[in-house]
Amino acid sequence: MGKIMILNGSPRAPKSNSKRYAKIFADYMTMECDYVELTSKNHSDICSKIGEYTDVLIVFPLYADALPVGLLDFFKTLEANPPLASKPVISIFVNCGFLEYTQNEVAVMMIKLFCQQNNYKVGSIFMLGSGEAILDTPFRFMVTMAIKRLSKSVVNKSYKEFHLSMPLTKRLFILASNVYWTNYGKKNGIDKKQMQTMEIEGQL
């Protein structure tokens, strides 16, 4: 039986959606499983332990069309400090706030390049669109079921690609996201008009 590390590469790991996705994955995981949050200070520590695992699932949000810079830095550290024994299979779970899961493709390509350059096998890949809000919608069950399949694919070593988004038209998605973000602003005491300001650093 293998052993898996779930690595949360979100810059706001303790309060992230990635943490929620990781938790669902861990709930369905039948292999021994450890959850680790990436910080700016624990890259070397993770590198020293990563060789103890048969698999790693990296869970992260899309940042400016690519990997968050903290995760990029982690890969650079791992490149410089590879595990001495065997290398784990690297699976990927990436989510973006856009409707199209395909907007995650560049981030996946970057990790595949890392794996190719450093001799890691790529495992399963999950690209999620509408990942900012989907867990708090009636479509949550779709994510849960898909993550269950992801988990199974890792356990069985029958690595696969998965993708998912809210089953909404673009216009409906935009309406729903308007409500989501307006409510987000309300909690901070600002309204939609204020959020729509065209000013940047107070200048037009």
Partner: peptide, 25 residues
């Protein structure tokens, strides 16, 4: 890895105040 290296990527990420939360097509 086929993307911007860290110095440039850090700034790209920090430039999101130029966008709004709201989504368009």
């Amino acid at each position: 890895y086929g993307g911007y290296d860290s110095v440039f990527k850090t700034m790209v990420e920090r430039a999101i105040p130029v966008q709004q939360a709201f989504i368009r097509i």
